[in-house]
Design a protein around this nucleic acid. Structure first.
Length: 652
RNA sequence: GCCACCGUAGCUCAGCUGGUAGAGCGACUGAUUUGUAAUCAGUUGGUCGGGGGUUCGACUCCUCUCGGUGGCUCCA
């Protein structure tokens, strides 16, 4: 066996080393700085500990804590460090799982009692102490049975439970630092001294294995970075995100409120918010009209039999408001519009020539969301859906489905939404007849058709098994709130089951009855959620067409109030939302107030402007734009509104 | 729903170990007639989320309840 091996680096350069060398030694041979910063390596494409001995020729990639691979290891190692600290302070605590997540890590513990903020500080202190000790982190491989024996002896019952679920033949690994041993796949940093810049963020309850039937554990979230600067930047980002939170801006800009006496999750839309909703609806009506949708309206209540037929009572009863008894019959507040639309479809006989039938309604629905689930406008109990149902033949399906997807993209373009993820939710064969309509062939056929449509349309998407609706696969568009919470913005579902239950038919060219497919779609989500999202997306700086307050006239002195009122009237006549600030304040104060209110256009008028019939334009965040004739100003504003132009952005 | 934390004026917040509440902004009034992010002065404003209890005395302690926040779980 040759003692010399060749190591290939990502840039294709090579170096020779003695067999058995590890990544840390290789880093040292390149430079002391790299040796200091390197956290983990990839050997032949596999992430490995720095101490992993390399026996044969290999390709190697070294990662510092700045690289995503390195950061993840750092996060994970810090989770271990936290667990070690917790075990030292609370010897009776049992450790469970502690993974790295995006920019953060957490660890769940089973302890008596809970963690207070003070406890977190104490744990954090302990962590610094343990980190500074420079404990060497070593990897130990063992058989599954040995692992069970070891963790049983340690009294770590959750770990034993985890191991017992692993295949008997597998070799497991554990990492040890001082007396602390944790089952872990690794890799980890070689020394706890590498962990310097961390902070524990918050604690919460978390069910063991995420199942509310299980015991509630105590979870601690924290974060770590490879430099003080990065940590600070991240903490700062969290602070900035809070400023964009739609709940904060929604209150500041008087968009919506919740009232204790009205009830949780039941928003009241203030005049400013209603303007935004109206604009969104105008956009939706306009684009749906052009796309051949017909608008319908349906009641808020229906008999229970309707939802029995649709299957919703069977599948979603827990999320519906309880039934009310009316003249001895059970009625439900509607949790969705589809059954009503099915009835409208069925109201007259359809031929294949009538299809596709596209029915749209911004119907208000009510869903009983668990109290802990409510989240500002993003998760509410009363909601208006940007809803429509498309009934089509199997031949028409692909094109209809794609048209819906294209409609999302058109909206995203209008709103400047760039960060999103498309998710295709598929059924789980094991759940057929339980969670899902029991028709395996139809599921497979439909899912294939959806995938084909998406592929042909050139869409990128991720497949998620076991997340489909009970009646068919669905496409969700996922976005993230300012504080990083993921949620579904647009949704598009294929329904091959419910039309049959409603006996919906169309007569085909051969004169025979067939059941149409139904596409459920809500590209603008619920209007509540969409507005919540937009508030954060724009950080309250709405583009002109959406801005509740579009133009404010700021008179330099009272002498020009008449001219100002004249402008307001003229703009009002043209449909521009314009107001005038007649407070006896100096112009600087009026500007400041307008800026804080995020009014996009300020029109400053003084005696010069009166004389020349001009206005001095100041765009929010842009500043003074100079004087222009009043008529030009009005037509510019109108054009910007009409074309729904993007807002000016500070950083662009 | 579960775990933790929080709840003082329209908003943001102060109020030490119990002695019946303060500031800034806002709003209002008056003066100022102002040129691109705060003119000055005055006035207004709270049964300290609500109920019950402990205490001579509760914003402060206990308890129940309502609401919010961070998570867990779920989302047609």
């Amino acid at each position: 066996m040759s003692n010399i091996i060749t190591i290939t680096f990502p840039d294709a350069s090579t170096r020779e080393y003695e067999s058995g060398i590890n990544s840390l030694q290789i880093a040292e041979s390149i430079g002391p700085r790299l040796a200091q910063d390197v956290v983990v390596s990839k050997v032949d494409g596999e992430l490995r500990d720095l101490s992993y001995p390399i026996e044969l020729n290999a390709s190697i990639e070294l990662f510092t804590g700045e690289a995503p691979e390195g950061h993840e290891v750092l996060l994970h190692s810090t989770a271990h460090l936290m667990a070690q600290a917790v075990k030292e302070i609370y010897p009776k605590a049992q450790v469970t799982i502690g993974p790295a997540i995006e920019n953060r890590f957490y660890y769940d513990f089973d302890i008596d009692g809970t963690f207070s903020d003070k406890d977190l500080l104490r744990i954090e202190e302990k962590m610094h102490e343990l980190a500074n000790r420079g404990q060497i982190v070593t990897r130990k491989e063992m058989s599954r049975d040995d692992a069970i024996t070891l963790f049983k002896k340690m009294g770590e019952h959750y770990k034993v439970e985890i191991i017992e679920d692993i295949d008997p033949g597998e070799t497991l690994s554990a990492y040890q630092q001082s007396d602390f041993i944790d089952l872990c796949r690794g890799p980890h940093v070689p020394n706890t001294g590498e962990i310097k810049y961390f902070k524990l963020l918050n604690s919460s309850g978390a069910y063991w294995r995420g199942d509310e039937k299980n015991k509630m554990l105590q979870r601690i979230y924290g974060t770590v970075f490879s430099s003080k600067k990065s940590l600070k930047k991240y903490l700062n980002f969290l602070e900035e995100a809070k400023k964009r939170d739609h709940r904060k801006i929604g209150r500041e800009l008087e968009i919506y409120i919740f009232d204790e006496e009205v009830g949780p999750g039941l928003p009241l839309w203030l005049p400013n918010g209603t303007i935004i909703l109206d604009e969104l609806e105008d956009l939706a009506k306009e684009s749906e009209r052009k796309a051949g949708y017909k608008r319908v309206r349906t009641p808020h209540l229906s008999k229970s039999s309707l939802y029995e037929r649709s299957g919703h009572l069977e599948h979603y009863k827990d999320s519906m408001y309880p039934a009310m008894d009316i003249d001895g019959t059970e009625y439900y507040v509607k949790p969705m519009n589809c059954p009503h639309h099915h009835k409208i479809y069925a109201a007259s006989p359809k031929s294949y020539r009538d299809l596709p039938v596209r029915l749209a309604e911004y119907g208000t629905c009510y869903r009983y969301e668990k109290s802990g689930q409510l989240f500002g406008l993003m998760r509410v109990r009363s909601m208006q859906m940007n809803d429509a149902h498309i009934y089509c033949t199997p031949e028409q399906f692909k094109e209809e489905f794609l048209d819906v997807c294209r409609m999302y993209l058109m909206y995203f373009e209008i709103f400047g939404i760039e960060k999103y993820m498309m998710r295709l939710s598929l059924h789980d064969p094991a759940e057929l007849g339980k969670k899902y309509v029991d028709d395996s062939d139809l599921w497979i056929k439909t899912e294939k058709a959806v995938k084909e449509a998406l592929d042909d349309g050139g869409f990128n998407y991720t497949e998620i098994p076991g997340e489909a609706a009970f009646y068919g696969p669905k496409i969700d568009v996922q976005v993230w709130s300012a504080i990083g919470k993921e949620f579904t913005l647009a949704t598009n579902q294929v329904d091959f089951a419910v039309p049959g239950r409603f006996n919906l038919t169309y007569t085909n060219a051969d004169g025979k009855d067939e059941t149409p497919l139904c596409i459920h779609r809500a590209p603008l989500s619920t209007h509540e959620r969409f507005v919540g999202f937009l508030i954060e997306h724009y950080a309250g700086d709405f583009p002109l067409w959406l801005a509740p307050r579009q133009v404010i006239i700021l008179p330099v002195s009272e002498k020009v109030h008449d001219y100002g009122r004249e402008i307001v009237n003229e703009m009002f006549e043209k449909g521009i939302r314009c107001e005038i600030d007649t407070r006896p304040e100096k112009i600087g104060a009026k500007i400041r107030q307008a800026e804080l209110s995020k009014i996009p256009v300020m029109a400053i008028i003084g005696e010069k402007e009166v004389e020349a019939r001009t206005i001095s334009v100041r765009r929010r965040k842009i500043g003074d734009q100079g004087s222009i004739p009043l008529d030009d100003f009005i037509s510019e504003i109108l054009d910007e509104i009409k074309t729904r132009r993007h807002s000016y952005r500070k950083t662009e």
